[in-house]
Computed example of a mutant assay.
Amino acid sequence: MTAVLQWVFGILIVATCCSSAYFSFRSRRSGNRRDSGLYASRMNISMGLMLIFIALIQMFIFTGSSVRVVVGSVFMLLGLFNLFAGMRNHAQFSRLPQ
Rank of each mutant, 00 (worst) to 15 (best):
Q6E: 15
M50C: 13
L96I: 06
Y39H: 14
G72D: 11
R68L: 14
Q58W: 13
L77Q: 06
F84I: 07
F93R: 06
R88F: 10
I11N: 05
S73T: 14
V74C: 09
A15Y: 08
R68N: 15
M76A: 05
G48K: 01
V70H: 08
L96S: 05
R42Y: 12
I11T: 11
L80M: 15
Q92C: 07
S19W: 09
R95H: 06
A91G: 05
L12M: 04
G72P: 09
R28E: 08
T2K: 07
W7C: 02
Y22V: 08
L12P: 02
G72R: 06
M47G: 14
L5N: 06
Y39M: 04
L56D: 09
L12S: 03
A15F: 14
H90K: 10
G48A: 03
G48T: 01
L77H: 02
F25D: 02
L38F: 04
R42M: 14
S27V: 00
V4E: 07
C18M: 09
C17G: 10
S20E: 03
M87A: 11
M43R: 11
N89G: 11
S36V: 04
L51T: 07
Y22C: 07
W7A: 11
R88E: 14
R33V: 05
L80Q: 06
S73A: 13
T63F: 13
V14T: 08
L80T: 12
Q92A: 15
N89Y: 05
T2W: 07
A21S: 08
I61R: 13
G10C: 05
T63E: 15
R28P: 01
V67P: 01
D35K: 05
Q98A: 09
S19H: 06
V14G: 00
N82T: 03
P97W: 05
M43H: 11
R28H: 02
L80I: 15
G31A: 06
M59Q: 13
L38H: 03
I61G: 06
S27W: 09
S30C: 08
F60V: 10
N44T: 03
Q58H: 14
R95N: 10
S20L: 05
T2D: 12
S41T: 07
L56E: 14
L51F: 15
S94F: 13
A85F: 12
M47T: 15
R26T: 00
A55E: 02
S46P: 03
N44C: 09
D35C: 00
I13L: 01
R88G: 00
G31P: 04
F84K: 08
L83F: 03
R88M: 10
G10Y: 06
V69M: 05
W7L: 14
